[in-house]
Each structure stands twice: as C-alpha cells, then as structure tokens.
Amino acid sequence: MNKSFVRPKSLVDVSTHYCPGCGHGIAHRLVAEVVDELDIREKVIGVTPIGCAVVAYDYWDFDCSEAAHGRALAVATAIKRVRPENIVFTYQGDGDLAAIGTNETIHAANRGENLTVVFINNAIYGMTGGQMAPTTLLKQKTATTPLGREIKYHGYPLKISEMLAVLQGVKYIERVSLQSPQAVLNAKKALKHAFENQINNVGFSLVEILSPCPTYWGMSPRQAMDWVRDVMSKEFPVGRIK
C-alpha cells in the first residue's frame, strides 16, 4: 500500500514548540511540501524572523538564517544578490514584517528583489505574549489593548499587502487562510506560485496567510479557526491582490 500522507523531506522529524491549534506548524509544512515538490531543497535558503517562528530553522531541513526583528528582507536581499542561483525566502509575522520591519519590507518590495515572502498574519504578537499587532482587528482585546483596539488610539488594522500591491516592483501578492482543509490547499497553491515566480525570475512575490493564534486570542483551536473564517477574513479578504 502506498502512503499518501508522509513527512516532507524538508521537514525534520521533531515535534514543534507551537501551541495547540497554532497556524505556524501548518504553514511550515506547506513551505516544506512546496520546496520538496519544486525539488529545490538543496538550494533553498530560508530567513526566519524574530517571533514565534524564529526557530523554524530547527524544523526545516535546509539552510536557514536568522534575522534581527524586522530585518528578514534586508538579510534575504543580500543573500539573494550574492547567490542569485539559490532560492531565498523569508517567513515573517505581522509584527516583524508590518511594524518594526515595515521599512525593510517596503524597500525590498520596491527594489523588486526576486524573493519569496511568507507572511503570517495572526493579528497579534505571539512570542512576546499577545500584544497588539499592526493587524489586530478593531475591538480585538490584547495585552496592550485591554479594552479592545480603538480607532481613536490605535488606528486601523494595517493592510500591508494592499499597500505593497501598488509598488511597481511587486509581481505577485495573494492572501490566503488556514481556516479549512480547502483553504489550506489554496494556500499551498499560492505558495507554490510564489516560489515558482522566483525560479522563473519574475520578481517579488508575497503570500499573506491568515493564521490562528488560539492562545493569545483566548479561544480553543476550533473557535480560532472559525474566527479566522467569520471575523478575520472579513477585515482581510482572501484572494489574489496582485
């Protein structure tokens, strides 16, 4: 009998540190599957962020570099420029990519660096204990918005993907979600496209993944998945942005 669901070669056989119901594990696996399917494991270089996913390099079985908080796209830019034959991607949370690292994000995109960006939007800062992220929804309670996010004090959820889409250097942006098995399959398709773009020298490609954080949303894993579907994706509609 053939096994149809096996561990991708690009995934190390260890258990992760992620909380039950966290989306990072799913997203890691999707990246690993795509890397395997495109047969690029031996030339891919991942850049991991500061955030819950900092140790993704313990889970992926290929070369990786850490980057200081927010600087993944600066690190990735340099790696790709000096090693254009390698396939270089960043994997970043919303705090990393859209708050402290906004400058690096915008300018790498605007330079049209031939990179693939995996952007995990979980509407919160996971690693530091559930503070407001730029993508936190209005009314969403976090450690630093105990009464919920308010426009008056905190502004609106930041739609960085839409912002980046107006830049001429950006070739592909799609927002996907992990809310259901079907959505996960779509997410994988988008990731594959973003990696293929780099292989074909198309240019800067980003996939935003709406991803659950049950722990800091104060929900069960199941509730968190439903919240992605019913609430989060109303604010951040899934689909091709560019």
Partner: peptide
C-alpha cells in the same frame, strides 16, 4: 543586516 545576510552567504 544586509551585511549579515551576505556574510552568512
């Protein structure tokens, strides 16, 4: 941080 990347490479 670009230097970090290039040096790592």
């Amino acid at each position: 941080n670009m230097v970090f990347g290039a040096s790592a490479a």
